[in-house]
Simulated scan of single mutants.
Amino acid sequence: MIKPGCWTVAPRILIVDDEKTIRLILRRILHKDGYQVIEANNGEQCLEICQKQLADMVLLDAMMPEMDGFTCCAKLHQLLGENSPPVLMITVLDDQASVDLAFQVGATDYITKPIHWAVLRQRVRRLLQTQWAMRELRRQIEKERMLSEKLEKANQELERLASLDSLTMIANRRNFEKFIESEWKRSYKNGLPLSIIMCDVDFFKAYNDTYGHQAGDTCLKKIADLIVQNVNRSPDLVARYGGEEFVVVLPETDLQGAVYVAEKICKSIKDAAIVHQGSKISNCVTVSCGVATRTSLSWNTDSNSQPSDLIKEADSALYEAKSQGRNRVYSYSIN
């Protein structure tokens, strides 16, 4: 049910899907939770409805004829900018490129088909609560626009909300991408090492299947807290990369230092003894970590590289860690 004290009227959710059956099922589920529902069967109708500011959030199918969901989402942000409603992308695609593209075009979150209805309801509720908080904050900013000190404080809070993952309350993917870009330029300019750690929860799908998605969310919050506890410096960043993946950025840190942090993370999570009977390697939750480092010497030899190259190397290292049995750290240094 809708959380009382937030929306004065039931939020309006726009369902965009070319399949009538899917729209019918979604409408029944959302109506049951007290939401108003608007429907569109293609991208053009979605854009028309949103320009009239009739939707508080959009459930958008990624794969539609004529205009797919990715194109529709990108056009929506081009037309409305900051006034765009949050978009929950629904897709049959679960590959990394499709996930990256969904965030790139402006989707707030995504969920894959076949849809797990309990997960859908939780994510809709969370996005609407965040949307309500953002609207209230904007209203307060407008009300106090003549008070420059309060206006500045509210703007900072708005920025903070937009940069956090709504579940774990650590930095979100967009915040990470801005941060790594900035640190990449700074490290290159000053010839300093830069490291990142990619962390993936081992057999997390099995955890959700065994204990349920609500327990899975609680598990992810605990893991985020444990990672933060092991990353002690203020210049460092811990972010949720997507799903059960986390990323740590370590400026001015060489490979040895980054591996040390990654090993601390692995150990602390295993020591937390979060029961995981669905794991194939342990009776508790574990993580695998991939580490990649851009050394101070490498800036002069490969000046055309990009932050995405370092991310790919960390992802490759993570793949190796998982291939070698999981619950371990694998490192890669770009010399």
Rank of each mutant, 00 (worst) to 15 (best):
D95M: 07
E136L: 05
V58T: 06
D309S: 11
K270D: 11
P114H: 14
Y207W: 13
Q140C: 13
G191Q: 12
L54G: 00
K20L: 15
K264V: 05
N208R: 09
V16N: 02
G243H: 08
D100A: 13
A97V: 11
L297K: 08
V92D: 08
W299A: 02
A321T: 13
R139E: 03
D56T: 03
D200H: 10
K178M: 08
D61T: 08
S303K: 03
Q277P: 00
I265H: 05
M67S: 01
G106C: 10
D165C: 04
L297M: 07
N155E: 12
C72K: 01
K150G: 00
V231K: 04
K150W: 04
D109E: 15
D109S: 10
A154L: 09
D61A: 02
N230H: 14
T71C: 08
F203C: 01
E183H: 13
L192Q: 02
V261F: 15
P307I: 05
C73D: 05
Y207K: 05
A321H: 04
Q78I: 12
V16Y: 03
P114F: 15
S331Y: 05
E149F: 15
Y332R: 09
C73P: 03
Y211P: 00
S303P: 05
L226D: 04
L59T: 13
A224D: 01
A239E: 08
D165V: 06
D68C: 04
T112E: 00
D18V: 14
N208P: 00
K312Y: 12
H276R: 03
S333P: 00
T218S: 06
L310E: 01
Q156M: 12
M67W: 05
Q214V: 03
V87L: 11
L76D: 01
